[in-house]
Design a protein around this nucleic acid. Structure first.
Length: 328
DNA sequence: GTCCAGAGGA
DNA sequence: TCCTCCGGAC
């Protein structure tokens, strides 16, 4: 159960949040190498040099690493004001998730994951993260199981097996043809460049085919227990905008992309919430705060939500087109 | 038929 | 910025 891995993440988070100095205990909580990063962010995402989209935004090294241990760190980590009641909102969503009897994470990663060799565990995290995107949970689980049963959850094995076999085994995950091809390429890169392990930084993960910001951050958290940033998918993006938790700089307009949401959200959301917020909002977004016709009537936090009961169904470009067609 | 959901290519 | 990739739920 992913809960196990989440457990270890929680341990890390608590220690990171409460330590005031960098101790060996804290350091040992990271299974990964720590890469101090100072990133200048660009407006347009390019595969080679990227982290995010807000121009001029810089992260202090200690912030990126996950430590708020020196004097200036707190101010830096909190340079944007938190929206009112955000704690109550998260608490309310947590309660709803529990009563709906959902898994807190919304994702099941490898029951046997803890018995695996760390390198193999990380590769399987990367593989299942890739499969899970744009795919229902049970479908991902089935595909991952089949890969495992065939011994295909290591870089070495994937590199050797032919693409057609992978394709058949992972069917019917979303975009299985492309994913099979990407998986082969990724396995080869992991083998050649990383000795069968996976990359340990966001930048290097982003160089892998089929890995964008969403999966890169997810893999850093689940694979390396290293919270570099929030894993923002379409649910986190939508819900944060509905709640008014993020907006374009100096305006009240919604953020335009998940990447913009991620950077904006990271400016005020305390670090210990970065890892758990994705599974929490994904569950909430699938059941209650749905993209089309959200169930505000049964939502326990609607009183905190500026969009409650007035979310107009977002008109997609496709439906806009068909509306236009009908008019013509 | 429409929408979902991230990444990549035009 | 839009389109494409996929099966499947609705």
């Amino acid at each position: 159960m992913f809960g196990l891995s989440l457990g270890s993440i929680n341990v890390f988070l608590i220690s990171a949040a409460t330590k005031t100095t960098l101790t060996t205990t804290t350091r040992s909580c990271f299974s990964s190498k720590i890469h101090p990063v100072s990133v200048t962010v660009r407006k347009k995402r390019s595969k080679n040099s990227v982290l995010s989209q807000i121009e001029g935004q810089k992260f202090a090294t200690h912030e990126i690493e996950g430590f708020a241990y020196n004097k200036g760190a707190k101010e830096l980590a909190q340079h944007s004001e938190s929206p009112a009641y955000w704690k109550k909102v998260l608490e309310g969503i947590r309660k709803m998730s529990c009563s709906a009897d959902e898994t807190a994470d919304g994702r099941e990663f490898d029951k046997e994951a803890d018995t695996l060799d760390p390198k193999e565990r990380r590769f399987s995290v990367l593989a299942s993260s890739l499969l899970s995107s744009q795919t229902k949970e049970h479908v991902t689980d089935g595909a991952t199981q089949r890969l495992r049963q065939n011994g295909l959850l290591t870089a070495d094995a994937i590199d050797k097996v032919d693409e057609e076999t992978i394709k058949k085994l992972i069917y019917p995950v979303g975009f299985y043809t492309r994913k099979a091809s990407n998986l082969k390429k990724i396995a080869n890169i992991c083998l050649v460049k990383y000795g069968g392990d996976i990359p340990s930084t966001i930048e290097e993960l982003l160089l892998l085919p089929g890995v964008g910001p969403k999966i890169a951050h997810l893999v850093m958290i689940l694979g390396w227990n290293n919270v570099q940033g929030i894993c923002v998918d379409t649910h986190v993006h939508r819900i944060c905008n509905r709640l008014g938790w993020v907006s374009r700089s100096d305006t009240k307009q919604k953020t335009l992309t998940p990447e913009e949401t991620r950077v904006t959200l990271q400016q005020w959301l305390p670090r210990e919430e970065w890892a758990p917020i994705n599974p929490l909002l994904v569950g909430f977004g699938r059941t209650t705060c749905t993209p089309l016709r959200p169930h505000c009537g049964e939502c326990a936090i609607s009183r905190f939500c500026p969009s409650a009961f007035k979310v107009t169904p977002s008109t997609s470009s496709k439906s806009k087109k068909s509306i236009l067609k009908k008019k013509l």
